[in-house]
């Protein structure tokens, strides 16, 4: 499994990095930490590139490198990377790869478990390229900023998307898994099992009876899901909640929830213009939300 963590400003990226690395560890996956630099006008892109080369030649940090250095130090401080004299950040090499991608190579870095990369341009386009080129399975991004970004990420990126909103490093979390009979739910359940197992988190499975579905049918889905967790020795409870799916799940999720749910099976065109339930939940919830694909 491959995980992509997109970071921006330093303080805002702390929770994203921390939770992202926890997920990466729970899946024992390789991780790419990406800094996407500001989009440069076509008028000035070559001028900016010449100036950045000049900064490299003068051993001055080019924009973005300081953020990656901060991320690297943060990972060492949290023991996600073992600290050695040989893998200090100050001895790095920037490798210019294709399509606005630059990889940071540290002199003493032996493992390929964590990659540091920089990209420049429009964020959705860059992350989409990164996911397509390197086949990442989960993209993790902070919950701040423009909400439209999250919608576009979920819509266009070919990986699961984890929006890390209002996450506190020291808080004890529980996993909230809204389920129905869709394929997307099955994937969400698998992901939730892995994550809950690694970090010994409690799980609450919820479902909302909608349309023609009887309460009995929904209860059956809940029990079937609970069984899957129990087989993996994970403490799970179930709850049937009523009302509209989006509002009732948003109201049920608390600050200490991590919501894991499947992507909507809806037509992409309908999703683009009218949104989808998972997307509305991700936008309205004040806690981390993972939409699996």
């Amino acid at each position: 499994m491959k995980i992509l963590i997109a970071i921006g400003g330093r303080e805002f990226s702390k929770p994203t990095l921390d939770l992202g690395m926890k997920i990466a560890n729970s899946f024992k996956s390789s991780t790419t930490i990406a800094y996407v630099g500001k989009k440069i006008s076509q008028f000035s892109e070559k001028d900016v590139s010449v100036v950045h080369q000049n900064l490299d030649n003068r051993e001055l940090y080019r924009p973005g490198i300081r953020t990656l250095e901060w991320a690297y130090d943060f990972l060492i401080s949290k023991k996600y990377i073992e600290e050695k004299d040989s893998n200090k950040f100050n001895d790095y090499l920037l490798v210019d790869e294709e399509n606005s991608r630059m990889k940071v190579l540290l002199k003493g870095q032996q493992s390929d478990k964590i990659d540091l990369i920089m990209r420049t341009g429009e964020i959705i386009e860059q992350l989409k390229n990164e996911v397509e080129t390197n086949k990442h399975d989960i993209t993790i991004i902070g919950g701040g900023g423009n909400k439209g970004i999250h919608q576009k990420l979920v819509q266009f990126i070919d990986s699961s998307v984890f929006v890390v909103k209002n996450y506190s490093v020291n808080k004890k979390y529980r996993i909230l898994v809204p389920v129905n009979e869709s394929k997307g739910s099955d994937m969400a359940i698998e992901t939730a099992i892995n994550f809950a197992k690694s970090y010994k988190l409690d799980v609450e499975i919820v479902s909302v009876p909608e349309g023609k579905k009887s309460i009995k049918e929904v209860e059956k889905i809940l029990l079937k899901t609970k069984d899957k967790f129990s087989k993996n020795k994970i403490k799970a409870s179930t709850k049937l909640i009523s009302g509209s799916a989006v509002n009732s799940i948003v109201n049920h999720a608390k600050d200490d929830s991590i919501v894991i749910l499947g992507v909507s099976p809806k037509n992409p065109i309908m999703k683009y213009f009218f949104g989808s339930k998972p997307l509305s939940i991700a936008q309205k919830c004040n806690c981390p939300v993972l939409i699996t694909k």
Partner: peptide, 14 residues
């Protein structure tokens, strides 16, 4: 910042 190369380069420093 889009008006001239100078402004864009300054902006690109973050």
């Amino acid at each position: 910042v889009i008006s001239s190369p100078t402004a864009m380069i300054l902006y690109s420093t973050g």
